[in-house]
Amino acid sequence: MLKFIASAWVLVGLVIGFVMPRAQDLKTTPIAFFHVPLAISMLLLFVLAAVWSIKWAFFGRDARDDARSLAFAEVGFVAGLIAMATGMLFARTNWGAYWSWDPQQVGVLGTLLTYAALFALRGATDDEGTKRKLWTVYAVLGVLVACFGSYVYRQILPPNASLHPNQTLTNSDALFKFALWFNVAGYAMLLICAANVRARFEIIANRLDERVWRGT
């Protein structure tokens, strides 16, 4: 059910994004209603991944929770890649370069590296229990890095060090803000649907693995 709502929501959001007046001094405004929601959804999905892994570790050790955590981290990673790619296109038209070592850009790159390392760690551990324990700890650390990298680090730099506008999310006019958060909700729902489907596959894979071990 959620997938129908999410898709319709995103469809409406897309149209809203295109009919919005040009925001501030940005060229190619509609991309902002895609790029920013994906970046925020990425963070949301990473937080959810950490929540599922904590649920695995401290509330019941249900392998399905671990599978969900993996799914959310994976989909969040893809969302981050898309946000970074669209951000680079956006940066090319507005700031004149695909990559300008903007603190926010580097922060997201660092976050993506963290999750790449997380997947590497999962691949490099043989024992299922150990694998999931290490995953939990590193997933929580990943959220820490995501917050520090993308929101805290730029606070210590001089105010104009980041090319990202500082308070678009909270200080724009109501219409712009509505369009932005409408799109955030839509993409977040759509990505959560995708993550749920991915989790179902992981759960099936786990059961098949179990069966191989039992030898039936």
């Binding site: 590296l113 390392a117 590497a120 490099a124 551990t125 290490l134 590193y138 820490l144 890095v145 520090f148």
Partner: peptide
Amino acid sequence: AQARGRGALFPALAAPILLPF
């Protein structure tokens, strides 16, 4: 130390975590 390769993974794990720090 518990992953395969005994700690070879350490720099890869630590570097992104410590990047903002």
